[in-house]
Design a protein around this nucleic acid. Structure first.
Length: 583
RNA sequence: GCGCCCUUAGCUCAGUUGGAUAGAGCACGAGCCUUCUAAGCUCGGGGUCGCAGGUUCGAAUCCUGUAGGGCGCGCCA
């Protein structure tokens, strides 16, 4: 389906033919032969560097070699002309009928257009959100949630077997604090006056409801009991309540995970001990004393012996501790074991989506994956930079203490999930992002969500008008597939098809690079091309889609249908609903 | 002090894994439209890709150094 890949095969076939005929030395390495759209449209439709890449090994002058290959490519039925340019590029211009064929591909495939097999069914695990189960999600979490969710959808479209996973950090001291905070709210629910929430406990109102729920379920069972009696059951209850709340918030954003992995279960099942022994057996564990970080010794620094993993042997900057002084595992130890667990569940490809504040953690986890999987597991960590929440250009002040903390749910309620999802992808994940609540819902040219949605709505509007104005034209897909496209000759029309035909390549490229934001950018470009064509109809009534000549109108309806389908296909990956009309 | 990320037009940012004359939106400038396919259209000016070296046919992209900004830096997760 990716036409550039198709031409790449054609080119490699030509090279092989030339080798067979003795015109080129045998066994040339064609791995670096690229086939892509040229930067300048004037150069044609497809460009290849084959001659420049093979010139040296073939001991030929690049332009001369290019001429040889271009001559063979010129014979191809889809190629109108093949010319040699610059230092040895071969530029192919494709026949108009070729593009008409690609439009038919789109209409035939529907929103499945762009589906690819490059993933070849390989299993990928995308772990994202993984927010601590101690409170509601805030806006900062939204970015990682969207990036992970769309990346997963993108990989699935590209033919990978994707599992979406959430790692529940339910094992550390913080969930004990959560349990104590719940106990307070539980007493409150049973009529006690608790006053101010003591320092060190979670003061948020969100635990009140959980306190009432616990009181309803268990009555006065935990009143007056010592902490060691109620801690574990209340902790479980609280985590459950928090996870339910988090999942509800995520669902409102359209984010649903396949698997939830518990850190506590990992530890209790002995899988951390197992990973530790594995490292020990490989001689990667020792007891040592770390130097303080140069230039910023912490105030309470004192040298002490620790159980360390030799992560420096795998590219880390210092060796990392695996045990706390009380003998329990550090977070890193269980996270290392968690990644081994994912690998053993069949995921040789693992993607973690984290906030930028965890950037310092990447090397040690990568080192652990490398050591534990003997280099067979591939980990890619996508770090999401900060999101600044604005309202009409003014920063929204956020502070947990002042209670002006903006939750994910509030933002989704305010602007809608589709807007949040799209805006979160209008920047590369490693650039910071401004999210302006006001601008996000404006219906103007510079709101990308509106702009793309509007293109789809306009396409729908054309079909609504066609039904009343041109009732003789059958507009179902199978009818449109049989329409003659010969009248589609305008450069803008062919340009639009060319863009649509580039969709499969965008999907593959974005999936392989793990860069979901490319989809949002592509959709803006596609929408712009369609709006341009539409505007042409404003100035020149012959350029409208619904013209008196029914054969021509039908061909243009096929074009509009194709556009509508590719936009819908892209929005589907983003998890954004394509709207049929604006209001 | 060390590590990671960022630095591209006045502003906010893309840049197809090393390709040809570096792009988009906004802003700015000049025209057009006063209508229908609703919330404008066309054209234009604007760049030493932070800086300096290196790698090669070819660098915004890779390597080294350097400046500025962000994040992080021994038992928190």
């Amino acid at each position: 389906m990716n036409l550039f890949r198709d031409f790449q095969y054609e080119i490699i076939k030509v090279i092989e033919d030339l080798e067979q005929e003795g015109l080129l030395p045998r066994g040339l390495d064609t791995a670096r032969v690229a086939c892509e759209p040229p930067r300048e449209a004037a150069y044609g439709d497809v460009t290849t560097n084959v001659a420049m890449v093979l010139a040296k090994p073939a001991q030929r002058n690049p332009r001369e070699l290019a001429a040889l290959v271009a001559e063979r490519l010129g014979i191809h039925h889809a190629v109108e002309k093949a010319i040699v340019a610059g230092p040895g590029f071969i530029n192919l211009t494709l026949a108009r009928t070729f593009w008409h064929g690609r439009l038919r591909d789109v209409v035939e495939a529907g929103t499945a257009y762009g589906d690819s097999t490059v993933g070849a069914g390989r299993e990928v695990n995308v772990e994202y959100v993984s927010a601590n189960p101690t409170g509601p999600m805030h806006v900062g979490h939204a970015r990682g949630a969207v990036v992970g969710d769309v990346l997963a959808a993108l990989l699935a479209k590209a033919g990978f077997d994707v599992t979406k996973e959430y790692y529940v950090n339910d094992a550390g001291a913080q969930v004990d604090v959560l349990a104590r905070s719940l106990h307070l709210r539980y007493r409150e629910a049973l009529g006690e006056t608790i006053g101010a929430v003591p320092e060190g406990l979670y003061p948020g109102e969100y635990l009140k409801e959980a306190g009432h729920a616990l009181a309803r379920r268990d009555g006065e069972k935990w009143l007056g009991e010592p902490e060691d009696v109620w801690l574990a059951p209340l902790r479980a209850f609280a985590i459950d309540a928090m996870m339910t709340m988090i999942c509800d918030d995520l669902a409102a954003l359209g984010v649903v995970h396949d698997v939830f992995s518990s850190e506590r279960a990992l530890v209790e099942s002995g899988r951390v001990d197992e990973a530790f022994r594995l490292l020990e057996d490989r001689g990667l564990i020792y007891t040592g004393v770390l130097d303080p970080p140069k230039g910023m010794t912490p105030e309470d620094w004192e040298p002490r012996p620790q159980t360390l993993f030799r992560s420096t042997e795998f590219g880390d900057d210092v060796d990392r501790p695996l045990r706390k002084s009380d003998g329990t595992w550090t977070y890193f130890a269980s996270d290392a074991a968690y990644h081994l667990d994912k690998f053993r569940r069949g995921f040789a490809i693992m993607i973690d989506v984290w906030g930028a504040d965890h950037g310092g953690y990447v090397k040690r986890v990568a080192a652990a994956v490398n050591a534990l999987t003997e280099g067979k597991g591939a980990l890619d960590v996508k770090l999401c930079q900060l999101v600044s929440l604005l309202d009409a250009g003014e920063p929204v002040k956020m502070s947990k203490r002042a209670g002006t903390f903006v939750t994910l749910k509030e933002v989704v309620d305010e602007v809608g999930k589709d807007v949040v999802r799209f805006i979160m992808l209008t920047r590369s994940n490693d650039a910071t992002l401004d999210f302006d609540l006001r601008k996000a819902v404006e219906q103007t040219r510079d709101n990308p969500v509106f702009y793309v949605q509007y293109a789809h709505a306009r396409a729908c509007s054309v079909f609504r008008n066609a039904a009343t104005e041109m009732p003789n034209i059958a507009t179902d897909d199978s009818s449109l597939l049989n329409v003659s496209l010969d009248s589609l000759t305008a450069v803008e029309e062919i340009d639009l098809i060319r863009l649509m035909a580039g969709w499969p390549r965008i999907v593959e490229g974005a999936a392989e690079a793990h860069e979901p934001h490319r989809i949002a950018y592509y959709l803006q470009e596609l929408a712009a091309a369609f709006h341009g064509l539409w505007n042409k109809g404003n100035a020149d009534s012959d350029a409208r889609f619904l013209v008196a000549d029914e054969a021509r109108a039908a061909a243009r309806l096929a074009l509009v249908r194709g556009l509508q389908l590719v936009i819908a296909s892209g929005l589907q990956v983003l998890g954004v609903k394509p709207v049929e009309e604006m209001h």
